[in-house]
Amino acid sequence: MEPTNWMGLAAVLITTIGSVAGMWAGRTRTTVQDIPVDAPSSAPAQVEGTWTVSPEMYKWVIELAQREANTRADRLEFLLGLALAHIDRQDDAAQAAGLPPAPMDPELAAARDTR
């Protein structure tokens, strides 16, 4: 065999060994039950070696996802309020300087007027 054939075979062998080692390491890491500190204490622990999800665990995951979505929505509403207040200040400053108001997107104008 030529040297390039041996190098190709060595590359395939090393890649295969690395993949097997990675799968083994990943398998051993997935059995550790890490529950976040802020997680509700009523969530049952998952039995090692199973992939079954209990109804309580499913409910816990759904509640956690809803809480995160609500947090994101609250944050978005807060940031939108800050942006609209900034736009109002800029409009007031421009009008005080004698500049005509700049045209605004109708959705932003409607959001600003509802505040």
Rank of each mutant, 00 (worst) to 15 (best):
M1L: 11
P3H: 15
N5D: 14
M7D: 14
G8Y: 13
L9K: 07
A10L: 14
A10W: 09
A10Y: 08
A10N: 12
A11K: 10
V12L: 12
V12T: 01
V12N: 08
T15M: 14
T16M: 14
T16V: 15
G18Q: 06
G18Y: 11
V20K: 13
A21D: 11
G22E: 12
W24V: 10
W24S: 11
W24Q: 12
G26T: 07
G26I: 08
Q33R: 08
I35P: 05
P36I: 00
V37P: 10
V37W: 11
D38G: 10
P44C: 04
A45V: 02
A45E: 07
Q46R: 13
Q46V: 07
Q46K: 10
E48S: 11
E48P: 15
E48L: 06
G49A: 04
W51Y: 12
V53A: 00
S54L: 06
P55R: 04
E56C: 03
E56G: 02
E56R: 02
Y58S: 12
Y58R: 09
W60P: 02
E63H: 07
L64P: 06
L64F: 03
L64V: 07
A65H: 13
R67K: 13
R67E: 09
R67T: 06
A69K: 08
A69P: 01
N70I: 01
T71I: 12
R72S: 08
R72V: 08
R72M: 09
A73M: 13
D74L: 12
D74S: 06
E77P: 12
E77D: 09
F78I: 03
F78H: 15
L80K: 14
G81D: 06
G81T: 08
A83E: 05
A83P: 06
A83F: 10
A83W: 05
L84M: 02
L84Q: 03
H86S: 07
I87N: 04
I87D: 03
D88I: 01
D88K: 01
D91G: 03
D91T: 01
A93D: 05
A94H: 02
A94G: 00
A96W: 01
A96N: 08
A97G: 02
A97W: 00
L99H: 09
P101V: 01
A102G: 00
A102E: 11
D105T: 00
D105G: 00
P106W: 02
P106Y: 01
E107G: 00
E107R: 07
A109V: 01
A111R: 12
D113H: 06
T114W: 14
T114A: 15
R115K: 11
R115V: 08
